[in-house]
Design a protein around this nucleic acid. Structure first.
Lengths: 151, 151
DNA sequence: ATAAACCCCATTGTATATGTAGGGATTGTG
DNA sequence: CACAATCCCTACATATACAATGGGGTTTAT
Protein backbone atom coordinates (compact mmCIF):
# COMPACT_ATOMS: atom_id res chain seq x y z
CA UNK A 1 0.00 0.00 0.00
CA UNK A 2 1.75 3.07 -1.26
CA UNK A 3 0.22 6.54 -1.16
CA UNK A 4 1.34 9.12 -3.67
CA UNK A 5 2.67 12.39 -2.28
CA UNK A 6 -0.35 14.06 -3.77
CA UNK A 7 -2.76 11.87 -1.85
CA UNK A 8 -0.77 12.31 1.32
CA UNK A 9 -1.04 16.08 0.88
CA UNK A 10 -4.77 15.77 0.28
CA UNK A 11 -5.21 13.83 3.49
CA UNK A 12 -3.10 16.27 5.48
CA UNK A 13 -5.04 19.18 4.04
CA UNK A 14 -8.37 17.66 4.96
CA UNK A 15 -7.22 16.75 8.44
CA UNK A 16 -6.21 20.37 8.80
CA UNK A 17 -9.62 21.39 7.50
CA UNK A 18 -11.41 19.11 9.94
CA UNK A 19 -9.54 20.66 12.86
CA UNK A 20 -10.41 24.15 11.65
CA UNK A 21 -13.41 25.86 13.31
CA UNK A 22 -16.56 24.65 11.60
CA UNK A 23 -18.15 27.00 9.10
CA UNK A 24 -15.07 29.24 8.78
CA UNK A 25 -12.76 29.25 5.80
CA UNK A 26 -9.07 28.46 5.81
CA UNK A 27 -6.53 29.64 3.24
CA UNK A 28 -4.21 27.70 0.98
CA UNK A 29 -1.29 29.87 1.95
CA UNK A 30 -1.34 29.10 5.64
CA UNK A 31 -2.21 25.45 5.11
CA UNK A 32 0.74 25.10 2.74
CA UNK A 33 3.20 26.77 5.07
CA UNK A 34 2.11 24.95 8.20
CA UNK A 35 2.26 21.53 6.57
CA UNK A 36 5.26 21.91 4.31
CA UNK A 37 3.27 21.47 1.13
CA UNK A 38 4.22 23.35 -2.08
CA UNK A 39 1.57 26.04 -2.44
CA UNK A 40 0.88 25.73 -6.16
CA UNK A 41 0.68 21.97 -5.93
CA UNK A 42 -1.78 22.28 -3.08
CA UNK A 43 -3.95 24.52 -5.24
CA UNK A 44 -4.36 21.70 -7.74
CA UNK A 45 -5.21 19.26 -5.01
CA UNK A 46 -7.85 21.42 -3.37
CA UNK A 47 -9.37 22.05 -6.76
CA UNK A 48 -9.76 18.33 -7.29
CA UNK A 49 -11.23 17.90 -3.84
CA UNK A 50 -13.68 20.66 -4.65
CA UNK A 51 -14.70 18.99 -7.90
CA UNK A 52 -15.18 15.79 -5.96
CA UNK A 53 -17.60 17.59 -3.65
CA UNK A 54 -15.47 17.20 -0.54
CA UNK A 55 -14.74 20.87 0.03
CA UNK A 56 -16.40 24.13 -0.96
CA UNK A 57 -14.63 27.34 -1.78
CA UNK A 58 -15.25 31.06 -1.61
CA UNK A 59 -13.33 33.40 -3.84
CA UNK A 60 -12.17 36.93 -3.22
CA UNK A 61 -10.99 38.73 -0.13
CA UNK A 62 -11.72 36.74 3.00
CA UNK A 63 -12.39 33.68 0.90
CA UNK A 64 -10.85 30.25 1.24
CA UNK A 65 -11.94 26.67 1.59
CA UNK A 66 -14.17 24.79 3.97
CA UNK A 67 -15.40 21.23 4.26
CA UNK A 68 -18.53 20.52 2.27
CA UNK A 69 -19.74 18.09 4.94
CA UNK A 70 -19.07 17.24 8.53
CA UNK A 71 -15.88 15.18 8.99
CA UNK A 72 -17.91 12.18 10.18
CA UNK A 73 -19.50 12.04 6.75
CA UNK A 74 -16.27 11.95 4.76
CA UNK A 75 -14.84 8.47 4.26
CA UNK A 76 -11.12 8.25 3.60
CA UNK A 77 -11.86 6.02 0.61
CA UNK A 78 -13.61 8.97 -1.01
CA UNK A 79 -10.61 11.19 -0.51
CA UNK A 80 -8.20 8.69 -1.94
CA UNK A 81 -10.43 7.90 -4.89
CA UNK A 82 -10.88 11.60 -5.59
CA UNK A 83 -7.14 11.89 -6.09
CA UNK A 84 -5.98 8.52 -7.38
CA UNK A 85 -9.07 7.33 -9.19
CA UNK A 86 -11.02 4.13 -8.49
CA UNK A 87 -9.40 1.72 -6.03
CA UNK A 88 -10.22 -1.32 -8.14
CA UNK A 89 -9.48 -0.46 -11.78
CA UNK A 90 -12.07 -2.01 -14.08
CA UNK A 91 -9.43 -3.00 -16.56
CA UNK A 92 -5.70 -3.60 -16.17
CA UNK A 93 -3.57 -1.48 -18.51
CA UNK A 94 -2.26 -3.34 -21.54
CA UNK A 95 1.36 -4.26 -22.10
CA UNK A 96 3.13 -2.58 -24.99
CA UNK A 97 5.60 -5.21 -26.14
CA UNK A 98 3.28 -8.07 -26.89
CA UNK A 99 0.24 -6.56 -28.51
CA UNK A 100 -2.53 -8.93 -29.41
CA UNK A 101 -0.87 -12.08 -28.15
CA UNK A 102 -1.73 -14.16 -25.11
CA UNK A 103 -2.26 -11.20 -22.85
CA UNK A 104 -5.54 -12.33 -21.32
CA UNK A 105 -5.81 -11.48 -17.64
CA UNK A 106 -5.42 -14.51 -15.44
CA UNK A 107 -8.64 -15.28 -13.53
CA UNK A 108 -6.62 -16.24 -10.48
CA UNK A 109 -4.64 -13.01 -10.51
CA UNK A 110 -7.81 -11.01 -11.03
CA UNK A 111 -9.39 -12.71 -8.07
CA UNK A 112 -6.39 -11.96 -5.88
CA UNK A 113 -6.43 -8.31 -6.87
CA UNK A 114 -10.16 -8.09 -6.31
CA UNK A 115 -9.97 -9.56 -2.82
CA UNK A 116 -7.10 -7.27 -1.89
CA UNK A 117 -8.91 -4.23 -3.20
CA UNK A 118 -11.98 -5.14 -1.21
CA UNK A 119 -9.88 -5.53 1.92
CA UNK A 120 -8.38 -2.07 1.48
CA UNK A 121 -11.77 -0.67 0.60
CA UNK A 122 -13.32 -1.90 3.80
CA UNK A 123 -10.58 -0.30 5.88
CA UNK A 124 -10.80 2.97 4.02
CA UNK A 125 -14.58 3.02 4.18
CA UNK A 126 -14.44 2.54 7.92
CA UNK A 127 -12.05 5.42 8.64
CA UNK A 128 -13.70 8.79 8.39
CA UNK A 129 -12.06 12.17 8.30
CA UNK A 130 -13.28 12.68 11.87
CA UNK A 131 -11.34 9.59 12.94
CA UNK A 132 -8.20 10.84 11.25
CA UNK A 133 -8.49 14.26 12.83
CA UNK A 134 -8.98 12.69 16.27
CA UNK A 135 -5.99 10.42 15.73
CA UNK A 136 -3.88 13.42 14.80
CA UNK A 137 -5.12 15.33 17.83
CA UNK A 138 -4.30 12.49 20.19
CA UNK A 139 -0.83 12.07 18.73
CA UNK A 140 -0.19 15.76 19.25
CA UNK A 141 -1.30 15.49 22.88
CA UNK A 142 0.96 12.50 23.47
CA UNK A 143 3.88 14.45 22.07
CA UNK A 144 2.99 17.34 24.33
CA UNK A 145 2.93 15.12 27.42
CA UNK A 146 6.30 13.64 26.53
CA UNK A 147 7.82 17.09 26.21
CA UNK A 148 6.67 17.96 29.73
CA UNK A 149 9.17 15.56 31.19
CA UNK A 150 11.97 17.76 29.90
CA UNK A 151 10.80 21.01 31.44
CA UNK B 1 -4.46 -2.06 -5.28
CA UNK B 2 -2.46 -1.93 -8.46
CA UNK B 3 -0.10 -4.69 -9.53
CA UNK B 4 2.81 -3.84 -11.77
CA UNK B 5 3.07 -5.75 -15.02
CA UNK B 6 6.18 -7.35 -13.63
CA UNK B 7 4.38 -8.73 -10.61
CA UNK B 8 1.52 -9.90 -12.76
CA UNK B 9 4.01 -11.79 -14.92
CA UNK B 10 5.62 -13.29 -11.83
CA UNK B 11 2.27 -14.57 -10.59
CA UNK B 12 1.37 -15.98 -13.98
CA UNK B 13 4.73 -17.68 -14.23
CA UNK B 14 4.40 -19.28 -10.82
CA UNK B 15 0.85 -20.41 -11.49
CA UNK B 16 2.21 -22.03 -14.62
CA UNK B 17 4.98 -23.60 -12.55
CA UNK B 18 2.51 -24.92 -10.01
CA UNK B 19 0.49 -26.61 -12.72
CA UNK B 20 3.63 -28.17 -14.18
CA UNK B 21 4.40 -31.81 -13.22
CA UNK B 22 6.14 -31.76 -9.85
CA UNK B 23 9.88 -32.25 -9.89
CA UNK B 24 10.28 -31.58 -13.61
CA UNK B 25 11.73 -28.39 -15.06
CA UNK B 26 9.95 -25.95 -17.33
CA UNK B 27 11.65 -23.54 -19.72
CA UNK B 28 11.45 -19.78 -20.00
CA UNK B 29 10.88 -19.97 -23.71
CA UNK B 30 7.70 -21.97 -23.60
CA UNK B 31 6.38 -20.17 -20.52
CA UNK B 32 6.92 -16.83 -22.26
CA UNK B 33 5.20 -17.89 -25.46
CA UNK B 34 2.23 -19.53 -23.81
CA UNK B 35 1.52 -16.58 -21.54
CA UNK B 36 2.37 -13.68 -23.82
CA UNK B 37 5.24 -12.49 -21.66
CA UNK B 38 8.37 -10.88 -23.22
CA UNK B 39 11.08 -13.52 -22.90
CA UNK B 40 13.94 -11.31 -21.76
CA UNK B 41 11.74 -9.59 -19.23
CA UNK B 42 10.67 -12.95 -17.89
CA UNK B 43 14.32 -13.90 -17.44
CA UNK B 44 14.79 -11.02 -15.02
CA UNK B 45 11.69 -11.97 -13.13
CA UNK B 46 12.59 -15.62 -12.71
CA UNK B 47 16.03 -14.60 -11.57
CA UNK B 48 14.52 -12.48 -8.83
CA UNK B 49 12.20 -15.29 -7.84
CA UNK B 50 15.21 -17.56 -7.66
CA UNK B 51 17.11 -15.14 -5.44
CA UNK B 52 14.04 -14.95 -3.23
CA UNK B 53 14.15 -18.71 -2.83
CA UNK B 54 10.83 -19.35 -4.53
CA UNK B 55 12.17 -21.29 -7.53
CA UNK B 56 15.30 -23.28 -8.25
CA UNK B 57 17.07 -23.50 -11.56
CA UNK B 58 19.21 -25.93 -13.50
CA UNK B 59 21.52 -24.68 -16.19
CA UNK B 60 22.60 -26.31 -19.39
CA UNK B 61 20.80 -28.58 -21.82
CA UNK B 62 17.61 -29.98 -20.36
CA UNK B 63 17.74 -27.36 -17.65
CA UNK B 64 15.04 -24.95 -16.63
CA UNK B 65 13.19 -23.85 -13.54
CA UNK B 66 11.14 -25.59 -10.90
CA UNK B 67 9.39 -24.57 -7.71
CA UNK B 68 11.63 -24.61 -4.66
CA UNK B 69 8.70 -25.71 -2.47
CA UNK B 70 5.28 -27.21 -2.85
CA UNK B 71 2.66 -24.66 -3.99
CA UNK B 72 0.82 -24.94 -0.65
CA UNK B 73 3.92 -23.51 1.03
CA UNK B 74 4.22 -20.41 -1.14
CA UNK B 75 2.18 -17.45 0.06
CA UNK B 76 1.24 -14.89 -2.55
CA UNK B 77 2.54 -12.17 -0.24
CA UNK B 78 6.01 -13.66 -0.63
CA UNK B 79 5.78 -13.51 -4.37
CA UNK B 80 4.63 -9.94 -4.44
CA UNK B 81 7.22 -8.83 -1.91
CA UNK B 82 9.95 -10.60 -3.87
CA UNK B 83 9.15 -8.40 -6.86
CA UNK B 84 7.87 -5.14 -5.41
CA UNK B 85 9.68 -5.00 -2.11
CA UNK B 86 8.08 -4.84 1.35
CA UNK B 87 4.32 -4.24 1.40
CA UNK B 88 4.54 -1.69 4.19
CA UNK B 89 7.51 0.61 3.49
CA UNK B 90 9.32 1.54 6.68
CA UNK B 91 9.72 5.12 5.56
CA UNK B 92 7.77 7.22 3.08
CA UNK B 93 9.93 8.77 0.35
CA UNK B 94 10.70 12.46 0.88
CA UNK B 95 9.35 15.27 -1.19
CA UNK B 96 11.78 17.24 -3.32
CA UNK B 97 10.35 20.74 -3.35
CA UNK B 98 10.22 21.44 0.36
CA UNK B 99 13.43 20.08 1.80
CA UNK B 100 13.77 20.36 5.53
CA UNK B 101 10.50 22.13 6.20
CA UNK B 102 7.40 20.78 7.87
CA UNK B 103 7.52 17.45 6.11
CA UNK B 104 6.92 15.27 9.14
CA UNK B 105 4.69 12.31 8.41
CA UNK B 106 1.22 12.69 9.82
CA UNK B 107 0.50 10.11 12.55
CA UNK B 108 -3.06 9.78 11.31
CA UNK B 109 -1.97 9.14 7.74
CA UNK B 110 0.65 6.67 8.91
CA UNK B 111 -1.96 4.80 10.87
CA UNK B 112 -4.29 4.65 7.87
CA UNK B 113 -1.52 3.30 5.67
CA UNK B 114 -0.50 0.78 8.29
CA UNK B 115 -4.03 -0.55 8.72
CA UNK B 116 -4.51 -0.81 4.97
CA UNK B 117 -1.21 -2.61 4.53
CA UNK B 118 -2.14 -5.07 7.24
CA UNK B 119 -5.48 -5.71 5.56
CA UNK B 120 -3.78 -6.48 2.24
CA UNK B 121 -1.17 -8.52 4.00
CA UNK B 122 -3.69 -10.77 5.64
CA UNK B 123 -5.37 -11.47 2.31
CA UNK B 124 -2.09 -12.14 0.56
CA UNK B 125 -0.84 -14.34 3.37
CA UNK B 126 -3.99 -16.42 3.17
CA UNK B 127 -3.80 -17.12 -0.57
CA UNK B 128 -1.17 -19.67 -1.45
CA UNK B 129 0.16 -20.52 -4.86
CA UNK B 130 -1.82 -23.76 -4.67
CA UNK B 131 -5.02 -21.75 -4.26
CA UNK B 132 -4.17 -19.60 -7.25
CA UNK B 133 -3.38 -22.61 -9.41
CA UNK B 134 -6.66 -24.26 -8.42
CA UNK B 135 -8.58 -21.05 -9.14
CA UNK B 136 -6.97 -20.89 -12.57
CA UNK B 137 -7.78 -24.56 -13.21
CA UNK B 138 -11.42 -24.11 -12.27
CA UNK B 139 -11.78 -21.02 -14.45
CA UNK B 140 -10.37 -23.00 -17.37
CA UNK B 141 -12.87 -25.79 -16.75
CA UNK B 142 -15.77 -23.35 -16.61
CA UNK B 143 -14.69 -21.90 -19.92
CA UNK B 144 -14.51 -25.38 -21.35
CA UNK B 145 -18.05 -26.21 -20.21
CA UNK B 146 -19.41 -23.01 -21.69
CA UNK B 147 -17.85 -23.81 -25.03
CA UNK B 148 -19.63 -27.16 -25.13
CA UNK B 149 -22.97 -25.46 -25.63
CA UNK B 150 -21.80 -24.26 -29.03
CA UNK B 151 -20.80 -27.65 -30.45
C1' DA C 1 32.45 -29.37 -30.03
C1' DT C 2 28.01 -27.95 -30.03
C1' DA C 3 23.66 -26.39 -28.77
C1' DA C 4 20.39 -25.63 -25.15
C1' DA C 5 19.43 -23.41 -21.52
C1' DC C 6 20.13 -20.10 -17.65
C1' DC C 7 22.92 -15.74 -15.93
C1' DC C 8 24.01 -10.88 -15.83
C1' DC C 9 24.40 -5.98 -16.77
C1' DA C 10 23.72 -1.85 -19.41
C1' DT C 11 20.70 0.88 -22.16
C1' DT C 12 16.42 2.74 -23.91
C1' DG C 13 11.70 4.41 -24.53
C1' DT C 14 7.43 5.65 -22.24
C1' DA C 15 4.38 6.91 -18.66
C1' DT C 16 3.49 8.72 -14.30
C1' DA C 17 4.50 11.62 -10.41
C1' DT C 18 5.75 15.90 -8.72
C1' DG C 19 6.13 20.03 -9.05
C1' DT C 20 6.50 25.40 -11.46
C1' DA C 21 5.02 29.39 -14.02
C1' DG C 22 1.98 32.68 -15.41
C1' DG C 23 -1.81 34.74 -15.55
C1' DG C 24 -7.27 35.13 -15.18
C1' DA C 25 -11.63 35.67 -12.47
C1' DT C 26 -14.08 36.96 -8.30
C1' DT C 27 -15.06 39.65 -4.34
C1' DG C 28 -14.79 42.39 0.10
C1' DT C 29 -13.11 46.90 1.63
C1' DG C 30 -11.60 51.72 1.77
C1' DC D 1 -13.99 52.56 -8.25
C1' DA D 2 -9.37 50.84 -7.26
C1' DC D 3 -7.05 47.49 -5.06
C1' DA D 4 -5.55 43.55 -2.91
C1' DA D 5 -6.64 39.00 -1.46
C1' DT D 6 -8.05 34.91 -2.80
C1' DC D 7 -9.33 31.07 -5.67
C1' DC D 8 -9.22 29.18 -10.70
C1' DC D 9 -7.15 27.22 -14.83
C1' DT D 10 -3.81 25.75 -18.34
C1' DA D 11 0.52 24.72 -19.83
C1' DC D 12 5.11 23.38 -19.12
C1' DA D 13 9.34 21.10 -16.86
C1' DT D 14 11.75 17.65 -14.53
C1' DA D 15 12.52 13.34 -12.06
C1' DT D 16 11.55 8.79 -11.17
C1' DA D 17 9.76 4.38 -11.99
C1' DC D 18 8.13 1.02 -15.25
C1' DA D 19 8.59 -2.04 -19.03
C1' DA D 20 11.11 -3.73 -21.74
C1' DT D 21 15.46 -4.75 -25.09
C1' DG D 22 20.28 -5.96 -26.42
C1' DG D 23 24.38 -8.27 -26.17
C1' DG D 24 26.78 -11.17 -24.60
C1' DG D 25 28.66 -14.79 -20.75
C1' DT D 26 28.41 -19.43 -18.23
C1' DT D 27 27.05 -24.13 -17.49
C1' DT D 28 25.98 -28.71 -19.00
C1' DA D 29 24.10 -32.94 -21.56
C1' DT D 30 25.09 -35.24 -25.67
Amino acid sequence: MRLSKKTEYALKALIYAARHPEGTTFQIKELAERNGIPKKFLELILLELKNAGIVHSRRGVGGGYLLARRPEAVRSSEIIEAIEGPLAPARVPKARGTRGLGEEPSPAVSRLVRESSEAIGSVLDRWTLADLAREEQEAAERRQRNLMYFI
